[in-house]
Simulated scan of single mutants.
Amino acid sequence: MDFKTIWTDPEELDETYPAMIQGVDYNSGGSRILGVIYIAQGIGPHATVILLHGFPGYEQNFDLAHVLLRSGYNVLIFHYRGSWGSGGDYSIDHVLEDVESSIEFLKSDFAKKSYRIDDKNIILIGHSLGGFSALITAAGHDEIKSVGCIAGFNFGLYAENISKSKSLMDSAAKKWEKAVISLNGMTVQNFIDDIVKNKYRWNLLNISENLKNHSVLMIGGRKDVIAPLEEHYMPLVQSLKEQKVDLKEIILDGDHSFVSRRITLAKEVLKWLEEQKSN
């Protein structure tokens, strides 16, 4: 396939239905969610990617959103409750609820008409916490056929490991101190308590069976020290293979945010998306 949309502007422009970017807001659990939607040119309707950022969300993958926009996809990026201006309090449960609310928003008559959305072709792609959330959400939605997990963090398995001793719990709390500073209503202690309490429910190995009817993209980073391959990527890939999930697995020579491999990352994501069209 042609990957020129990664580095080249469109040669032809649709003046009637141009590409555009608009701010959006909608309700989730009684709180106002803020986001932005990238609308592909053309009358559509367009396949729409919900691009989920991580915890707390310093890397939000806007470069990837522009590549997908130029390639004909709509993209929604939003901020979970309690983060980056969205209302309410932050928690992983709220994150998962906010992903559900975003799907409902895209399926609304208003969104379909305003943003030229194909509500039968919604795709979930997430980074880190976003990858975790994308997989868990897709496992409960048979109609969402394609889900991508980029440097996904398996919070349940991580919680199982640190809960083995007090010293590991204390070390984990110290590690996450700075990550919660920008999150409303979140402390490092209630974060640790929450993931330990939900360690079975949030272990991605326990939901792999529910992804049998999905196409799954797994991308890991060889230099990732936040979600190391040995703990977060390889066990899940093995579990998905055992369940005979339609899986594409890719390991890039990058860190958790793929800072030095953004073009390669965009190429792999776009290649996978285009492969879905021929399936």
Rank of each mutant, 00 (worst) to 15 (best):
E160D: 06
A151P: 00
D93R: 11
S208K: 07
D118A: 14
A139K: 04
D98G: 06
V245W: 08
A179S: 14
I122N: 04
W176E: 03
D194N: 14
F62W: 10
V216K: 05
K4N: 15
S83A: 10
I219V: 08
D255N: 14
V24Y: 09
K248W: 06
I21T: 15
D142C: 11
I123K: 06
L247E: 05
E59Q: 12
A159D: 01
A173K: 14
L204G: 00
H46Q: 00
G140P: 06
F62N: 11
E15F: 11
F62V: 13
I77Q: 10
K248L: 10
L240D: 07
N206F: 02
F110K: 15
L135V: 00
N154H: 08
G42M: 00
E97K: 13
S86P: 07
P228W: 01
I50H: 03
L252E: 08
R81W: 05
G29M: 05
A19W: 05
I39G: 04
E160F: 03
L229I: 10
L157V: 01
G220W: 02
L265N: 05
D193A: 15
S86I: 04
L34Y: 12
D255E: 07
G42R: 04
I103D: 07
W84E: 04
E209R: 14
A179W: 07
L52A: 01
V99D: 01
I162H: 01
L69R: 13
V99E: 00
L211H: 07
